[in-house]
Amino acid sequence: MKTAALFFVLALPFHSSVTQVCGFDFFYLVLQWPGSFCDTEQKCCYPNSGKPDAEFLIHGLWPNNNDGSYPSNCDPDNSFASSQISDLISNMEANWPSLACPSSNNYSFWAHEWNKHGTCADSIFNEHDYFEAALNLKDKVDILQILSSSGIEPNDNSYSLSSIEEAIQTGFGFSSVIDCNKDASGSIQLYQVQLCVDKTGTSFIACPDSSSGSGRCSSEVKFPSF
């Protein structure tokens, strides 16, 4: 009995630590523009399923905290299994493709997203539900259409960052976090749009103050074609 009691006492701090590290307050649904992935010095490779459509594609569904921190790689014993998402594959190939080289069947990309981010939400989602939740959220918002409605087109022209943020705020109803990268010539361009989602992974919400501001962007950003 003393041995069992000692084990229980020693185990409590460890369990508490894991819960603290892997807790979270909301999700980012991260949508990336493929043209801005592919025109960098690193370039891109289309997946085996073919060239994706010219639309904002899912990068990931990432648990985050209100203070700006985020958990990652929360459960190494709960690794990705493609058999769990067999009914979602065609949808994921269209909406969540890998553009990394070399060309692939996307599984390594999806495995990375689940292992790093999805396992931190496994108290809410199993693997199948995690990927399905991201797909369902993407179906609710068309960032390209929202931008196009405000005259912001992927035509290699530059637009003010404030006009992009305002267009999404108006057309989507909530603010977003814009992320930029550089093309092969060094021009700053629109890369990703991060939308905030409640902890259930089902509804969009206003982003917390800690997420205000857009990363790696300048006041004018290019919107490349694809």
Rank of each mutant, 00 (worst) to 15 (best):
Ser150Ile: 04
Pro102Gly: 14
Ala121Met: 06
Val141Trp: 00
Ser98Cys: 01
Asp209His: 07
Thr170Pro: 00
Glu165Trp: 09
Leu147Met: 09
Glu113Thr: 08
Val30Lys: 08
Val30Ser: 14
Ala94Phe: 02
Ile164Thr: 11
Pro63Cys: 09
Lys116Val: 00
Asn65Leu: 04
Tyr46Trp: 13
Cys74Val: 09
Ala5Phe: 13
Gln84Gly: 00
Ser219Leu: 07
Phe174Trp: 12
His117Asn: 13
Trp110Arg: 05
Glu132His: 04
Val221Ala: 10
Ile124His: 06
Tyr46Ile: 12
Leu88Ala: 04
Glu41Ser: 10
Gly213Ile: 05
Val18Ser: 12
Asp77Arg: 13
Asp77Glu: 14
Ala94Ser: 14
Thr19Trp: 08
Asp198Arg: 09
His59Glu: 06
Phe14Gln: 12
Ser83Asn: 03
Ser211Gln: 15
Ser214Thr: 12
Glu220Phe: 10
Pro102Val: 15
Pro224Trp: 15
Leu10Ser: 07
Lys140Cys: 11
Gly151Met: 13
Leu12Ala: 13
Pro224Ser: 14
Gly50Tyr: 09
Lys51Ser: 12
Phe56Gly: 00
His112Val: 00
Asp139His: 04
Thr40Gln: 14
Asp53Glu: 13
Ser17Cys: 07
Asn106Tyr: 07
Val221Asp: 06
Ser149Asn: 11
Pro97Gly: 08
Asn181Asp: 14
Ile152Gln: 04
Phe125Cys: 03
Glu132Val: 03
Ile205Ser: 03
Asp183Ala: 06
Ser36Arg: 04
Glu166Pro: 05
Gly173Val: 09
Tyr130Cys: 05
Ser82Val: 15
Val197Cys: 08
Phe8Gln: 07
